[in-house]
């Protein structure tokens, strides 16, 4: 998203919203687009859900880890089980989370509150952002009547742009997280655990930045 537009939207939201948590989040300015990647703090996030339709699915778990000084900081890794409105259904076969496991989870509104806490002043990083970001926006709107107004890097979109620039985009090229990781000589991780996937996308991002020409000069604007 255009960063000027984002700033404008955040400013409008600040005027409208009376919620203390949301205001604290918005009052923390977003990092300038010219900030060097190595100076910025980024939050790599992954969500497991009950299905694929962002308008109807429930969040089951959410995990994140921070990138600081171009390093993935595992001390900041955090994950939460979220109690869905409905049941887990067939999705249990994908992520292994059962109804019993999620019954003790936190409420979605509580989850989004923590998300706002960690994202304040930072940049969100998601691999294949579509579903996750739409779902976060929906939960955020349900709780605070506003979208999740945060700068975001989508590692899949970033790689897609890079390859189309270099005409490396064949029909059979997969941009799935495990395939991209292999491309950057990153180890294979068992997928569909929200925290593992968050770490996996964080490693992918630092690898993608390291592979850029003059990577020390990479700014956030180069990655949006």
């Amino acid at each position: 998203m255009n960063q000027v537009l984002l700033t404008l939207q955040r400013w409008r939201a600040l005027r409208r919203s009376g919620d203390a948590v949301f205001r604290t989040f918005i009052e923390q300015p977003i990092p300038a687009p010219g900030t060097l990647f190595t100076d910025a703090e980024l939050v790599c996030m992954d969500i497991e859900t009950t299905g694929l339709n962002p308008k109807t699915v429930d969040m089951l778990s959410i995990g994140w880890v921070l990138i600081r000084n171009s390093k993935v900081d595992l001390a900041t890794a955090e994950a939460h089980i979220v109690k869905p409105n409905g049941g887990v259904g067939h999705s249990a076969s994908v992520h292994g989370l059962t109804d019993t496991m999620v019954s003790d989870g936190i409420k979605p509104s509580e989850a989004i509150e923590r998300v706002l806490g960690v994202l304040a002043g930072r940049v969100l990083v998601v691999h294949h952002a579509g579903l996750d970001k739409t779902l976060l926006d929906r939960i955020c709107r349900e709780r605070y009547s506003e979208k999740l107004l945060v700068p975001m890097i989508d590692t899949l979109a970033l790689e897609h742009r890079r390859r189309s620039r270099h005409h490396h985009l064949g029909e059979n090229i997969s941009l799935r997280l495990p395939d991209l990781r292999q491309h950057y000589n990153l180890p294979w991780y068992r997928g569909h655990n929200c925290l593992t996937d968050a770490v996996a996308s964080a490693e992918l991002l630092i690898a993608m930045v390291a592979a850029r020409e003059q990577h020390q000069k990479t700014t956030l604007a180069d990655l949006y």
Binding site: K71, V72, L74, A75, L186, E203
Partner: peptide, 14 residues
Amino acid sequence: VATSMQIGYYRAGN
């Protein structure tokens, strides 16, 4: 150990 480490990525030659 697992929850206190930092992960870095180094391109060949660095």
